[in-house]
Write a protein that binds this DNA or RNA. Structure first.
Lengths: 115, 115
DNA sequence: ATAATAGTACAACAACTATTGAAATATGCA
DNA sequence: TGCATATTTCAATAGTTGTTGTACTATTAT
C-alpha cells in the first residue's frame, strides 16, 4: 500500500453512509450482502447506495459479485488490513511502550488473537 | 467514538500531505515535532502545513503545545486507537476465523504485543 | 416476448475543500 | 524598544464531491 492508495481508502470511508456500509460489511463477514439489503439497512436510496458502493469498490475496500439478479458486496479484508497497517507503521520508532496503553488496545479488534 | 467523529478523523487523514504528517507523528511518538520541522519534512509551505495541522487537530488525531516560540504537534494515540477500533468493531460477527488470515495480521502494528 | 425486479449510469446543481499570497500575531533576543 | 523567527489567519479562487431524479441494463419468471 502506498500513500495515494491509502488516501483513496480513507476518502472512501470519510462519509457517513459509506462508513455505515463498510462497518455493516465488516460485521457481516466474507459472504457479504446484496446491494438492496445494504441500501435498506443504512436508509439510502438505490441510486445513492450504488454510488457509495462504487466508491468503496473503487478504493478496493469491498468487492462486488453478481449472483443471479443480485449483486453481493463483501468487505475485502486483506485490503483493510493493509490500510490499518499503513496508518500505524513504525509507531513510536519501534518502541511501543511509548504509546503502549493506547495502540496495543486497538489490536483487540477481533478476538481470537493467540500470540 | 461515534460515526460523525470517525468521519471527521477519516476525512482529516484522506489527504496526501495530512496523511504524511500523521504518519510522521505516529513514527515520532509522544514528544512530537514543531510545525516548521513538520512542514519541511513533508515539503509543505508554512501556510499549507498550518492548515493541515489544524485539520488533524480539529479531528483530535494530533494536539498542539506551544513551547517557546515553537508549536509542537504530537499524535493523540488514544484517539487513533478509538478510530481503528471503530472501523473493525464486531468484525465477522465475532467469528474472526472468517477473516483470520487478514485482520489478525493488522494487530502486529506495533511490536511488543505480549498477550 | 413481456413484465417485474435488482441495480447502475448520467447530468445538473449545490456544497464543500484545497491552494495561494499577503497580512497579522506571538515569542525571544539584542 | 525594535527586529527576527515561528506560526496562524484571512480572502479569493479553483477544484472536487455529494445529491437528486430520470433513464438505462441485466436477470428472472410467466
Amino acid at each position: 500500500m502506498n500513500s495515494k492508495d491509502a488516501v483513496t481508502c480513507l476518502a472512501a470511508l470519510a462519509h457517513d453512509q459509506r462508513l455505515a456500509i463498510f462497518r455493516l460489511l465488516v460485521r457481516e463477514g466474507p459472504s457479504g450482502l446484496p446491494a438492496g439489503e445494504i441500501a435498506e439497512a443504512i436508509g439510502a436510496t438505490p441510486t445513492g447506495a450504488s454510488f457509495h458502493l462504487k466508491e468503496l469498490d473503487r478504493a478496493g475496500l469491498i468487492h462486488a459479485t453478481r449472483v443471479g439478479r443480485y449483486i453481493r458486496y463483501a468487505a475485502h479484508f486483506d485490503k483493510i488490513r493493509q490500510m490499518l497497517t499503513f496508518l500505524t507503521e513504525d509507531c513510536c520508532q519501534g518502541q511501543p511502550e511509548l504509546c503502549g496503553s493506547t495502540i496495543k488496545k486497538a489490536r483487540k479488534l477481533c478476538k481470537g488473537e493467540t500470540k
